[in-house]
Design a protein around this nucleic acid. Sequence first.
DNA 1: TGCTTCACTAAACCTAGGTTAATTACCCTC
DNA 2: GAGGGTAATTAACCTAGGTTTAGTGAAGCA
Lengths: 196, 196
Amino acid sequence: MSLQIDMENFIQYFSGNKLSIDSTNFEKFGLKAKLKHYQKGQQLITQGQPAPKLFFLVKGIVRYMSVSPEGKEFTQSFASAPSLSGSTRAMTRNVDALFSIEALDDVICLEFEWQVFFEQMKSQPGFLSAYNRLLENMFIKKEEREYAFVQQSAEQRYLTFLDRNPQLRDKISLKMIASHIGITPIALSRIRNKLK
Amino acid sequence: MSLQIDMENFIQYFSGNKLSIDSTNFEKFGLKAKLKHYQKGQQLITQGQPAPKLFFLVKGIVRYMSVSPEGKEFTQSFASAPSLSGSTRAMTRNVDALFSIEALDDVICLEFEWQVFFEQMKSQPGFLSAYNRLLENMFIKKEEREYAFVQQSAEQRYLTFLDRNPQLRDKISLKMIASHIGITPIALSRIRNKLK
DNA sequence: TGCTTCACTAAACCTAGGTTAATTACCCTC
DNA sequence: GAGGGTAATTAACCTAGGTTTAGTGAAGCA
């Protein structure tokens, strides 16, 4: 897989988010990106450590997860290629990451230094609007999740999850789904049993 | 309170968010804003209805709240002047609001049509960056809240709330705090009793 | 072939928080 | 100052989901 093709995907991705940049214009930017490969289980960023990087997933699936002081795992979200990935908080505020991003299968991605990326991109016409659009979407998703945690039962959250993420169904374990919807694997097993 | 002073606050607010616009530049924009007054209990936007407006709170406190199909209230958040207010989802996606915004005391605010506001502002140097910054902050807050709901007990969430919102403490009822941290007023009363 | 590890399930028991209902304490307004 | 609302508290009881422990089956490995 050539870098050229990856950049095409990247541009495509942003185009879908209403960013109009022609690819020649974009090429010089490509030089700043590293093409990386992560094996299943490896971490792209690590909880408690600086995470100044932005990733563009070309292939594979990742999971955002953190471990509480008491040792409980929580899965904030999943992301599958093609998509942008990284910790907004850690990148933009220059603080340590509150979660890790871990590869759920073999992952190929482009890696950018956020500060450099943002400095270069913010002058590109349309970039800031595309980034706004992205942030709005991210915010709206979190809002929906907040609502689900407070107003819905675990069973409802599980059904919603299945409904919205059919492509993940066979890729991730019950344990991960459970920690994403905020219950224990045992509780999810009970729910499954009840549903069938 | 003159409109002029309100615009000053508004500019000030954005300046704090790294937007540099000189006030003369801004004046022509001011003509598009309506200065509004809401009595305690009135709604700025209403759940289930279009909410294309952006508000700049000049005075007062509001609460974002929704009622579930089963009739349970949930308080998404509070906002006190000076700050921007509105439903990101409803404004930017042109859909009905999922929550209401209700005045908790007498509220004075500037009211903008989001579409017009955004169209005019997006060409102002610095505005898109300021808006990005705002969205990032909003997202990070929701992330923290998501984490709290999953990893913390109701008691911990209550203590965090008190800690972070000392200015709200005497302005809002126990019922509202309870519905904000995701429990019933009765449960919160028990927690208070246990704590004292 | 056995040994280990990990994913999932199942049963028994526990607890945080929900639900219902009663009680007090306030404000209102008439 | 008598009624009617609403806010907060308390107690009794209930339930969703957590915890502990045990068991099964598949995957990896010596």
